[in-house]
Nucleic acid binder design. Structure first.
Lengths: 341, 341
DNA sequence: GATTTTTAAGTAAACGCTTTCCCAGTTTTT
DNA sequence: AAAAACTGGGAAAGCGTTTACTTAAAAATC
């Protein structure tokens, strides 16, 4: 049987309160007593029982991450796990444990209610993919600190945090203009793909600023995959005036785009620049290697961890907004940036 | 303040013992009382306090997954997260929560000791990447059920579970022979890369069985990346008799391999078949699409979850060995399988 | 040296649930 | 009709900490 605080107290010849105080510090205890207690703990190989401690302290030092995982989670969405890794890092640093629960959006409200009522965790990080109005409604007056990762697409009271995809789009456009490209096209995901939409929004806002007009037939929407990227690019190539650079909403689309350009004998980056977002492994091994706007999702995870930790300290902290900064990673699919701007 | 079991008992006009029994079932309670209690729980929106329950039950219904995460975890190693997703699924199914803790190999023994002594979890799944002799030594006589994911490279008492990479190698060789290929080459990772080594071992064992001799210069070892795959393939192409199929130890190497073959004008799969292991997204979008031996790591995670759950039930369950079955996913980089074998 | 302040350590309640043991009432057995 | 078995429900003892309160001793103040 594992030693309890009582055993330690007996061996050290003190009360259990004293032992507890020694363990938890910040109480006035004589050095002599401290030493005695430490000795006794060593002797008995004592470690506080966390279950008892959690109960007594009314806390678990644990934060729950709620999202949808499912098969192929790691392959199809490396972001999700970058976030988790970042979260874990921020929490682990402060002695908190990350709990992970995969849940379907429709099951989320019930489960979340359970979490909140049962005090299963000290804080909850909810991925935007499982939120719904019902969930929002449910949580509103609950006591456990919680934040949402990703911008909800309806007005909600959530304290959320997201990547600034619009900013990423702005950076993409700015960068290409500075490289000397003059006419940009955009190849994006479906209408419902908010990420793609935000990126486009950023691109357009910069172009407007510079009075660059993008004809509608240089703006394409389709699936977020390679084939769709190929087709959309071909459509663009059929138009009567060509852009000199294409912004692809993601890596897969970019791959299709590059293939289409190659097939048409268009040189990258001389005749046409290609730029995309995110930095999946194959953007580094493609020929040419892709210049990307790199979204640091790991950092977003870290920020999310810090934010929830903050909320746990000050529960009344309201609707906070945080964004991680995109970064250009220059590779071979765009011309070198020249001084002219 | 949240309602406690006492409040429910008062409202229902019963004792707290009765309420507890109703909640936990499998006690003889009259339907009338059950209804009363349920009504009271509804009325008060009562949910058992898990911290108290964990304490009373001496269990947390939580399993801890220990591994090294770090930045780029999701991008560089989708496997890790497929495993986690599988684990979560198996555990979640049974009402257990998955805790995730990232830890460096050198910190592992201390932390693991802490986990075990403090009863932080009911079970622990340890990824092979953090195990060491010291850790093995430390854990030996501890009480918390634990398993290791991945084959330790030293004799240990661990209960472990791993992918059968040798079998995967055998399947690769068998498959290619059945496709009509006659002379195989292998392009692998470094010497220390046990996964690559096991896969090669499997390949060779099959070839031996069929009395196919592989000249040493058709066996290459290098880094596990694209460039290395390219170089190793070129080396093979320089040899005086060419193989008619190449097995690549992983997707990255395979990509380099395909590039080298293309550059030399060698047709895939007619002149040369290419087969690799794992199924990263880009193996599906490459030209040609790669035939792969698909390792179902998600399933491994599920199996691991089941195993640790088992161990928790029967702690004396000893050294168990489990392997997930690799599967051939036929694509375009190998000839169609013909009847002849 | 008497009073107040500070410091060190102990007492005991609380945290909310589970579970064993026991009792009373009811049903079944003989 | 007495004994035995069964059923439904309550009392209370944990589970191992933390922490507010208390006390005794030591130090500081006058």
């Amino acid at each position: 049987m594992a030693a309890t605080i009582r055993d330690v107290a007996n061996l050290a010849g003190t009360s259990i309160a004293t032992v507890s105080k020694v363990i938890n510090g910040s109480y006035s205890i004589s050095q002599k007593t401290i030493d005695k207690v430490h000795w006794a703990m060593e002797e008995l190989n004592y470690h506080p029982n966390l279950r008892a401690r959690n109960f007594a302290r009314q806390s678990t030092r644990q934060v729950l991450f709620l999202t949808t995982l499912g098969e192929n989670a790691g392959f199809s969405n490396p972001h999700m796990f970058e976030i988790m890794a970042g979260l874990e890092r921020a929490l682990g640093n402060k002695g908190y444990l990350l709990g992970v629960k995969s849940i379907l959006p429709e099951e989320a409200p019930d489960f979340v209610k359970e979490v909140f009522e049962s005090k299963m965790a000290d804080g909850v990080v909810i991925h935007a993919s499982i939120i719904s109005r019902k969930l929002d409604e449910m949580i509103r007056y609950k006591e456990i600190p919680h934040i949402v990762l990703g911008l909800p697409d309806f007005a909600s009271h959530f304290c959320w945090l997201d990547i600034d995809n619009k900013l990423a789009g702005e950076m993409a456009a700015n960068y290409l203009l500075q490289c000397g490209y003059q006419s940009l096209a955009f190849v994006g995901g479906t209408d419902e793909d908010k990420i793609s939409a935000h990126r486009l929004e950023g691109v357009l806002s910069v172009l407007k600023e510079y009075d660059v007009i993008v004809p509608r037939y240089h703006l394409k929407y389709g699936e977020s995959d390679c084939d769709s990227g190929f087709q959309m690019t071909e459509q663009i190539l059929e138009s009567h005036n060509l852009p000199d650079a294409i912004i692809c909403a993601n890596n897969y689309i970019a791959y299709g785009c590059v293939n289409a350009l190659k097939e048409h004998g268009i040189r990258i980056p001389e005749d046409m620049g290609v730029l995309t977002f995110d930095d999946y492994p194959f953007s580094r091994i493609l020929k040419p290697k892709l210049t990307v706007i790199n979204i640091d999702v790991y950092d977003m995870g870290i920020q999310a961890g810090k934010l929830i930790l903050n909320k746990m300290k000050k529960p009344n902290l309201q609707i906070q907004f945080y964004c991680t900064l995109p970064l250009v990673t220059e590779r071979e699919s765009t011309r070198k940036q020249n001084g002219g701007h």
